[in-house]
Design a protein around this nucleic acid. Structure first.
Length: 558
RNA sequence: GCGCCUGUAGCUCAGUGGAUAGAGCGUCGGACUCCGGAUCCGAAUGUGGAGGUUCGAGUCCUCUCAGGCGCGCCA
């Protein structure tokens, strides 16, 4: 049990004892909130439980707090002091002995320190990035990729069974346009005077793909159908996307093709199901879904009006997406997470409506919207147009600032905030750059541990060292910070927000650097050195585990 | 026009309805015979505006101002 769990358990026992003795009326189930106070004089952990109880039974928070702490068990070696402050806050101080125990736990758990089981094996599908294969990933996709991957890491750490999935929109109007655009680029290479239409893909990358095609097949493709070019472009672009994501440290468990949903008739089937439940109708030559029945602003089209040029009735993207989500449910996931760009927010209602129409529970279908990213260089916003000399692709960003920096910067902000990526700061290799500041702690701890070996100090194991020697305030604060990692991770998992971990790392790094600056780890006092080496090793493990969750490397030397 | 999101320090942003609102950058001033100076210590600056709910509001509600995004039989 973690320290937080132990305190919650103490509080529950205390409340139970107080209510059975009739000192506090029965108040029903309470969600006990613990907090890490900002000020040292408020202890290690505090709770506002007395305020919530006082509100329900209309009495003073101070009186309730008084009763609670009188009923609290003070044996058990967890708490050294309990106080009431600020009119009803209950503040706890954790014993040194319990903190030393944490050092042992960290050493023993090693790579798995920070894990928990709040997920209880529930299956989660995270669908993220899923950019159309019509061009390279840009920096906005980078943020989604970073977010989705880190969220997946965190949920896995918390005991969920996680699948990372990329949904490929490999069919439909855009794919056709892509094929047409490539064909024109190819024919241009052959010297033909043909121009891209206004809606064509104008990016330089398609010219390069045309060159690749020419290298492979020379001029033998001039009479191929558009579909041939679509496939060639799609494969080349998907390969580029995959490679960029791997360079970024993001690996998917599953790549899901929209086209296969059509080929295997799953789209037709889901439309039949929707017809059967009576939520569809024909109008103006199209098939509509009555999403307004579920709170959408207007009804949405599933199958489009007959197209003049193709003479066919084509499905909308929406139709495919309904089949896709039905398929996700059918695969037995408990939680479906869609990490989308904020520009898709208008689309959420209609998809929820469709799933409700099919009878699926809406509450385990999550939409997490990722706000836009802007770049800043030389204190100026960088234009996001594809003008020459100004990068916009994720791949270029990785080349310029490095994977570690890019990943850390993308996750520093709350998902819902606009993110301004400061390239100048990102490229500084000094303390100004938070990534190096944190990685430096890891390198430093490794270096200290190596120095200890060099000096012939025996291998320091927590259960062999005399940890009682760690009694400085800085040391106890450092250990307490290490002790709070599992709870920090749980908090991130509960609200699907990983950015708290960057703040955690900054704080931990600050405490450590300060400690290091003022106290020698390895000194003439061998026993003390041993104890401090255990602490340093624990810091190393916590920094490494947290950076790993963030997809950032933990270098031993820098 | 309608809908969603965002307004917190000079800049970029944290901040589960709780205690004296924090961090990084930038600015200014300091610290090294040492286990890594890619480090450390110190200083200044405040919630867009108006009401309301509450014992308590940056956080919840209403209005207002400013910015972003969306409002296709595109995806």
């Amino acid at each position: 049990m973690s320290i937080n769990e132990e305190i919650i358990s103490l509080l529950k026992k205390s409340l139970l004892s107080a209510t059975t003795k009739g000192r506090i009326p029965e108040v029903g189930l309470l969600d006990i909130q613990l907090d890490y106070p900002k000020r040292q004089e408020y202890g290690n952990i505090s709770t506002n439980i007395a305020f919530s109880i006082a509100k329900k039974i209309r009495t003073s928070p101070y009186a309730v707090a008084q009763i609670i702490i009188e009923s609290i068990e003070k044996t058990g070696g967890l708490i050294s002091k309990v106080e009431i402050a600020g009119g009803g806050f209950i503040n706890f101080w954790v014993t040194k002995e319990r903190l030393y125990q944490v050092l042992k736990e960290i050493e023993e758990a090693n790579e798995s320190y920070g894990t928990s089981n709040i997920g209880q094996g529930k299956k989660v599908l995270i669908d993220f990035v899923s950019a159309n294969p019509t061009g390279p990933l840009h920096v906005g996709h980078g943020r989604s990729a970073d977010y989705g991957d880190i969220l997946a890491n965190i949920l896995a750490f918390c005991g969920y069974k996680v699948t990372r999935e990329y949904y490929i929109n490999d069919i439909g109007t855009q794919m056709k346009t892509l094929g047409e655009s490539l064909k024109i680029r190819y024919l241009q290479l052959l010297g033909q005077d043909v121009q891209l239409p206004d809606n064509g893909y104008k990016g330089e990358y398609l010219v390069e793909i045309a060159r690749t095609l020419y290298k492979q097949k020379e001029d033998t493709c001039r009479n191929e159908e558009v579909e041939f070019f679509t496939n060639f472009a799609k494969d080349a672009i998907l390969e580029d996307i995959r490679k960029t994501l791997i360079d970024f440290g993001v690996q998917y468990d599953s790549w899901f093709s929209e086209k296969e949903l059509y080929d295997s008739k799953q789209v037709d089937e889901v439309i039949d199901s929707l017809k059967k439940v009576g939520f569809t109708y024909e109008s103006e030559g199209a098939l509509w879904l009555k999403t307004t029945a579920f709170g959408d602003e207007k009804d949405r089209v599933l199958i489009r009006q007959e197209n003049n040029t193709s003479g066919r009735r084509e499905h909308t993207y929406f139709a495919g997406d309904i089949a896709y989500h039905k398929n996700k449910y059918a695969r037995g996931y408990d939680i479906l997470i869609n990490a989308w760009g904020t520009d898709h927010h208008g689309y959420i209602k209609r998809l929820e409506a469709a799933m409700s129409a099919l009878g699926y529970p809406a509450n385990n279908l999550m939409f997490l919207l990722c706000q836009l990213v802007s770049l800043r260089r030389d204190n100026q916003p960088v234009s996001m147009s594809t003008r020459a000399g100004e990068f916009v692709t994720l791949s270029e960003l990785i080349k310029e600032v490095g994977k570690d920096v890019a990943r850390f910067f993308f996750v520093m902000r709350k998902l819902n905030s606009h993110l301004e990526f400061d390239l100048d700061l990102a490229k500084q290799s000094s303390k100004e750059n938070p990534v190096y500041y944190i990685q430096y702690v890891h390198a430093r701890t490794c270096s200290i541990l190596a120095k200890a070996v060099e000096k012939g100090l025996p291998q320091s194991l927590a259960n062999q060292a005399n940890l009682n020697l760690l009694k400085l305030d800085e040391e106890l604060a450092l250990i307490f910070k290490l002790a709070s990692l599992p709870q920090e991770i749980i908090n991130c998992a509960k609200c699907y927000e990983p950015h708290g971990l960057t703040a955690y790392l900054m704080e931990l790094a600050g405490i450590f650097h300060n400690y290091y600056q003022h106290h020698r780890v390895i000194s003439a006092n061998k026993e003390l050195s041993q104890a401090r080496l255990v602490l340093v090793n624990a810091v190393r493990i916590v920094i490494r585990n947290t950076l790993t969750l963030l997809g950032v490397s933990a270098p031993q030397r820098m």
